[in-house]
């Protein structure tokens, strides 16, 4: 009988667990966390281009000068939110932004770029998400800062805010460019 009672308490226990997470969630802002790949060279990879684009994205493209790699998808709502910021970043600051298009039908990705603009110097298509796994991507969007030697120096999870760009990303890029 006591065991049977436990079953009836299960929904309550589940809900309390969910509520605790929701409470923590309320106190959170999009935040950056260190990744296991920080200061390691980018994983070796080669991704094909979107149909109609000339170049895809390979690890060789990420050597030479500091640049950003942004993992995005047309179905991802937070990506839509950070997108205008990437446009500004590419147009106004001259920072090279490259894209990894994550698990996205190519025509959707093209429609999205056509609609909102294309801030990316080049885009690699990661249709099955294999390369993203090697990069340690949890979900989209994520943004990586790569230095001139092709090492990952910083990783941002979730949509970038204007504040993240001006207080973290741009100062770090300037630091690396010196």
């Amino acid at each position: 009988m006591a065991f049977r009672r436990l079953w009836f308490a299960l929904p309550l226990a589940t809900f309390l667990g969910v509520a605790a997470y929701l409470a923590i969630g309320l106190t959170r802002d999009p935040s950056a966390v260190p990744s296991a790949l920080i200061d390691k060279p980018v994983p070796r990879f080669a991704l094909p281009p979107l149909p109609g684009h000339d170049t895809g994205l390979t690890s060789a493209d990420l050597v030479g000068r500091p640049q950003l790699v942004n993992v995005f998808a047309s179905w991802c709502v937070p990506c839509r939110i950070e997108h205008p910021l990437l446009m500004q970043l590419a147009e106004l600051t001259g920072v090279t932004v490259r894209g990894i298009n994550y698990k996205d039908p190519s025509q959707d990705a093209l429609a999205w770029l056509e609609r909102f603009g294309n801030p990316y110097a080049s885009i690699g298509v990661d249709s099955d998400g294999r390369v993203a796994i090697e990069w340690g991507v949890y979900g989209v969007p994520e943004t990586f800062l790569i230095d001139g030697d092709g090492r990952i120096r910083y990783k941002h999870i979730g949509p970038l805010s204007a504040d993240d760009v001006t207080t973290k990303i741009l100062p770090m890029i300037r630091e690396l460019e010196r």
Binding site: S31, P78, C79, G139, E142, H156
Partner: peptide, 9 residues
């Protein structure tokens, strides 16, 4: 671990 979206896949 930040805000992400798992989406349609």
């Amino acid at each position: 671990a930040g805000k992400v979206s798992v989406g349609p896949p």
